[in-house]
Amino acid sequence: MNLLQQGAEARLFAANFCGRSCIVKERFPKKYRLQEIDEKLTKKRLSQEVKALQRCRKAGILTPIIYFVDTTRSIIFLEKIDGETVRQHIVSVRKMQEDSSYHSIYPMAREIGKILAKLHDADLIHGDLTTSNMIIKTSDNKLDKKTNEIFLIDFGLSFSSSLAEDKGVDLYVLERAFLSTHPNSEELFSVLLDAYKDVSKKSSSVLTKLEEVRQRGRKRSMIG
Protein backbone atom coordinates (compact mmCIF):
# COMPACT_ATOMS: atom_id res chain seq x y z
CA MET A 1 0.00 0.00 0.00
CA ASN A 2 1.19 3.50 -0.83
CA LEU A 3 1.24 6.07 1.94
CA LEU A 4 -0.66 9.04 0.58
CA GLN A 5 -0.66 11.33 3.53
CA GLN A 6 -0.10 11.43 7.24
CA GLY A 7 -2.89 13.44 8.76
CA ALA A 8 -3.10 14.43 12.40
CA GLU A 9 -5.08 11.36 13.38
CA ALA A 10 -4.41 8.72 10.83
CA ARG A 11 -2.28 7.56 7.95
CA LEU A 12 -3.95 7.36 4.57
CA PHE A 13 -2.96 4.69 2.07
CA ALA A 14 -4.07 4.04 -1.49
CA ALA A 15 -5.23 0.48 -2.00
CA ASN A 16 -7.59 -1.76 -3.85
CA PHE A 17 -10.73 -3.27 -2.39
CA CYS A 18 -12.39 -5.97 -4.51
CA GLY A 19 -11.39 -4.21 -7.70
CA ARG A 20 -12.26 -0.72 -6.58
CA SER A 21 -9.62 1.83 -5.76
CA CYS A 22 -10.00 2.83 -2.15
CA ILE A 23 -8.46 4.81 0.65
CA VAL A 24 -7.29 2.95 3.73
CA LYS A 25 -7.43 5.09 6.84
CA GLU A 26 -5.39 3.70 9.68
CA ARG A 27 -5.51 5.23 13.13
CA PHE A 28 -2.10 4.20 14.41
CA PRO A 29 -1.13 4.48 18.07
CA LYS A 30 0.16 7.92 18.96
CA LYS A 31 3.22 7.40 21.09
CA TYR A 32 3.25 10.89 22.52
CA ARG A 33 0.17 10.28 24.64
CA LEU A 34 -0.51 7.73 27.36
CA GLN A 35 -1.81 4.40 26.20
CA GLU A 36 -4.92 4.90 28.34
CA ILE A 37 -5.74 8.11 26.51
CA ASP A 38 -4.73 6.85 23.09
CA GLU A 39 -6.76 3.65 23.09
CA LYS A 40 -9.88 5.35 24.31
CA LEU A 41 -9.67 8.12 21.73
CA THR A 42 -8.84 5.81 18.85
CA LYS A 43 -11.73 3.50 19.59
CA LYS A 44 -14.20 6.31 20.08
CA ARG A 45 -13.17 8.20 16.98
CA LEU A 46 -13.29 5.17 14.75
CA SER A 47 -16.84 4.38 15.74
CA GLN A 48 -17.88 8.04 15.59
CA GLU A 49 -16.51 8.30 12.09
CA VAL A 50 -18.29 5.19 10.84
CA LYS A 51 -21.58 6.21 12.39
CA ALA A 52 -21.43 9.75 11.04
CA LEU A 53 -20.52 8.68 7.51
CA GLN A 54 -23.61 6.50 7.38
CA ARG A 55 -25.93 9.05 8.91
CA CYS A 56 -24.68 11.68 6.47
CA ARG A 57 -25.51 9.54 3.48
CA LYS A 58 -28.99 9.00 4.88
CA ALA A 59 -29.37 12.78 5.19
CA GLY A 60 -28.33 13.23 1.56
CA ILE A 61 -24.87 14.60 2.23
CA LEU A 62 -22.07 13.33 0.03
CA THR A 63 -19.43 11.36 1.93
CA PRO A 64 -17.15 8.50 0.91
CA ILE A 65 -18.78 5.05 1.01
CA ILE A 66 -17.47 2.70 3.69
CA TYR A 67 -16.29 -0.59 2.20
CA PHE A 68 -14.99 -2.30 5.29
CA VAL A 69 -14.13 -1.62 8.95
CA ASP A 70 -11.51 -3.44 10.98
CA THR A 71 -12.03 -2.44 14.59
CA THR A 72 -9.16 -4.45 16.04
CA ARG A 73 -6.58 -2.70 13.89
CA SER A 74 -8.57 0.57 13.71
CA ILE A 75 -8.72 0.65 9.95
CA ILE A 76 -11.48 1.91 7.66
CA PHE A 77 -11.59 1.16 3.95
CA LEU A 78 -13.23 4.08 2.19
CA GLU A 79 -14.28 4.97 -1.32
CA LYS A 80 -11.67 7.09 -3.07
CA ILE A 81 -13.00 10.48 -4.11
CA ASP A 82 -11.25 11.92 -7.16
CA GLY A 83 -10.85 15.60 -6.59
CA GLU A 84 -8.97 18.20 -4.67
CA THR A 85 -9.60 19.63 -1.23
CA VAL A 86 -11.57 22.85 -1.07
CA ARG A 87 -8.47 24.41 0.44
CA GLN A 88 -6.32 23.49 -2.58
CA HIS A 89 -9.11 24.61 -4.88
CA ILE A 90 -9.39 28.05 -3.29
CA VAL A 91 -5.64 28.55 -3.29
CA SER A 92 -5.25 27.55 -6.94
CA VAL A 93 -8.23 29.60 -8.14
CA ARG A 94 -6.80 32.62 -6.40
CA LYS A 95 -3.41 32.09 -7.99
CA MET A 96 -4.83 31.72 -11.48
CA GLN A 97 -6.81 34.92 -11.58
CA GLU A 98 -5.31 38.38 -11.68
CA ASP A 99 -7.05 40.02 -8.78
CA SER A 100 -6.95 38.25 -5.46
CA SER A 101 -10.71 38.31 -4.87
CA TYR A 102 -12.84 35.30 -4.17
CA HIS A 103 -15.81 36.23 -6.37
CA SER A 104 -15.52 33.28 -8.70
CA ILE A 105 -15.92 30.81 -5.86
CA TYR A 106 -19.01 32.32 -4.27
CA PRO A 107 -21.18 29.52 -5.76
CA MET A 108 -18.99 26.94 -4.05
CA ALA A 109 -19.25 28.77 -0.71
CA ARG A 110 -23.04 28.79 -1.07
CA GLU A 111 -22.98 25.06 -1.77
CA ILE A 112 -20.91 24.42 1.37
CA GLY A 113 -23.32 26.52 3.41
CA LYS A 114 -26.23 24.40 2.16
CA ILE A 115 -24.44 21.15 2.97
CA LEU A 116 -23.69 22.31 6.52
CA ALA A 117 -27.31 23.35 6.98
CA LYS A 118 -28.41 19.85 5.99
CA LEU A 119 -25.81 18.31 8.31
CA HIS A 120 -26.94 20.35 11.30
CA ASP A 121 -30.62 19.88 10.56
CA ALA A 122 -29.92 16.14 10.82
CA ASP A 123 -28.45 16.86 14.28
CA LEU A 124 -24.95 15.92 13.20
CA ILE A 125 -21.91 17.88 14.33
CA HIS A 126 -18.77 17.44 12.25
CA GLY A 127 -16.38 18.62 14.96
CA ASP A 128 -13.46 19.46 12.71
CA LEU A 129 -14.70 21.60 9.85
CA THR A 130 -11.87 23.04 7.79
CA THR A 131 -11.42 23.57 4.08
CA SER A 132 -9.02 20.59 4.14
CA ASN A 133 -11.87 18.34 5.19
CA MET A 134 -14.01 19.02 2.13
CA ILE A 135 -13.30 17.54 -1.28
CA ILE A 136 -14.53 19.08 -4.49
CA LYS A 137 -15.13 16.68 -7.34
CA THR A 138 -15.58 18.09 -10.79
CA SER A 139 -17.23 15.92 -13.39
CA ASP A 140 -18.45 16.56 -16.91
CA ASN A 141 -22.08 15.88 -17.54
CA LYS A 142 -23.82 15.24 -20.84
CA LEU A 143 -24.41 18.88 -21.68
CA ASP A 144 -20.67 19.49 -21.61
CA LYS A 145 -21.07 21.51 -18.47
CA LYS A 146 -18.90 20.97 -15.46
CA THR A 147 -20.66 20.10 -12.25
CA ASN A 148 -19.10 20.33 -8.84
CA GLU A 149 -19.90 17.98 -6.01
CA ILE A 150 -18.64 18.60 -2.51
CA PHE A 151 -17.87 15.70 -0.20
CA LEU A 152 -17.34 15.99 3.54
CA ILE A 153 -14.61 13.82 5.05
CA ASP A 154 -12.80 13.22 8.37
CA PHE A 155 -15.59 12.63 10.83
CA GLY A 156 -13.38 11.45 13.69
CA LEU A 157 -14.48 14.27 15.99
CA SER A 158 -18.12 14.15 15.00
CA PHE A 159 -21.03 13.46 17.28
CA SER A 160 -24.75 13.75 17.29
CA SER A 161 -26.43 16.67 19.04
CA SER A 162 -29.46 18.86 18.63
CA LEU A 163 -28.07 21.70 20.74
CA ALA A 164 -27.67 25.08 19.08
CA GLU A 165 -24.51 25.52 21.17
CA ASP A 166 -22.76 22.55 19.51
CA LYS A 167 -23.81 23.68 16.05
CA GLY A 168 -22.65 27.20 16.79
CA VAL A 169 -19.24 25.95 17.92
CA ASP A 170 -19.05 23.78 14.78
CA LEU A 171 -19.51 26.88 12.62
CA TYR A 172 -17.11 28.86 14.80
CA VAL A 173 -14.39 26.24 14.32
CA LEU A 174 -14.92 26.47 10.56
CA GLU A 175 -14.92 30.25 10.60
CA ARG A 176 -11.61 30.34 12.43
CA ALA A 177 -9.98 27.78 10.18
CA PHE A 178 -11.42 29.45 7.09
CA LEU A 179 -10.26 32.97 7.87
CA SER A 180 -6.79 31.93 9.00
CA THR A 181 -6.21 29.65 5.99
CA HIS A 182 -7.57 32.04 3.38
CA PRO A 183 -6.57 35.64 4.13
CA ASN A 184 -9.22 38.34 3.65
CA SER A 185 -11.99 35.84 2.98
CA GLU A 186 -14.52 37.42 5.38
CA GLU A 187 -16.95 38.12 2.54
CA LEU A 188 -16.66 34.61 1.16
CA PHE A 189 -17.44 33.19 4.57
CA SER A 190 -20.47 35.44 4.95
CA VAL A 191 -21.75 34.11 1.61
CA LEU A 192 -21.45 30.64 3.12
CA LEU A 193 -23.31 31.68 6.24
CA ASP A 194 -26.07 33.34 4.22
CA ALA A 195 -26.67 30.10 2.35
CA TYR A 196 -26.71 28.24 5.67
CA LYS A 197 -29.30 30.70 6.94
CA ASP A 198 -31.49 30.27 3.85
CA VAL A 199 -31.54 26.49 3.98
CA SER A 200 -31.42 25.53 7.65
CA LYS A 201 -34.70 25.37 9.49
CA LYS A 202 -33.17 26.19 12.86
CA SER A 203 -30.58 28.71 11.73
CA SER A 204 -31.62 31.63 13.91
CA SER A 205 -30.77 29.99 17.25
CA VAL A 206 -27.54 28.55 15.82
CA LEU A 207 -26.38 31.88 14.46
CA THR A 208 -27.20 33.59 17.76
CA LYS A 209 -25.02 30.98 19.48
CA LEU A 210 -22.28 31.52 16.91
CA GLU A 211 -22.25 35.18 17.84
CA GLU A 212 -22.12 34.23 21.52
CA VAL A 213 -19.17 31.89 21.00
CA ARG A 214 -17.34 34.60 19.06
CA GLN A 215 -17.85 36.99 21.97
CA ARG A 216 -16.54 34.39 24.37
CA GLY A 217 -13.31 34.28 22.40
CA ARG A 218 -12.98 38.04 22.44
CA LYS A 219 -13.86 38.60 26.04
CA ARG A 220 -11.39 36.09 27.29
CA SER A 221 -8.72 37.92 29.26
CA MET A 222 -5.44 37.35 27.53
CA ILE A 223 -2.62 37.74 29.97
CA GLY A 224 1.03 36.75 29.78
Partner: peptide
Protein backbone atom coordinates in the same frame (compact mmCIF):
# COMPACT_ATOMS: atom_id res chain seq x y z
CA UNK B 1 0.89 28.40 25.73
CA UNK B 2 0.91 30.50 28.89
CA UNK B 3 -1.22 31.65 31.80
CA UNK B 4 -3.36 33.82 29.58
CA UNK B 5 -3.01 32.39 26.10
CA UNK B 6 -3.38 29.14 24.25
CA UNK B 7 -3.01 29.54 20.51
CA UNK B 8 -1.75 27.59 17.53
CA UNK B 9 -0.30 30.11 15.10
CA UNK B 10 1.15 30.00 11.60
CA UNK B 11 2.46 32.80 9.41
CA UNK B 12 0.98 33.70 6.07
CA UNK B 13 0.66 36.88 4.05
CA UNK B 14 2.08 39.34 6.58
CA UNK B 15 0.13 38.13 9.58
CA UNK B 16 0.57 35.59 12.32
CA UNK B 17 -2.73 33.79 11.86
CA UNK B 18 -4.45 31.93 14.65
CA UNK B 19 -5.46 28.44 13.51
CA UNK B 20 -6.43 26.96 16.84
CA UNK B 21 -7.19 28.50 20.17
CA UNK B 22 -8.81 27.81 23.50
CA UNK B 23 -12.47 28.65 23.42
CA UNK B 24 -12.51 29.41 27.14
CA UNK B 25 -9.59 29.61 29.62
CA UNK B 26 -5.87 29.30 28.87
CA UNK B 27 -4.00 26.10 29.64
CA UNK B 28 -1.71 27.87 32.11
Amino acid sequence: VSGGNTQVIAYSERRYRIFGETIDIAVG
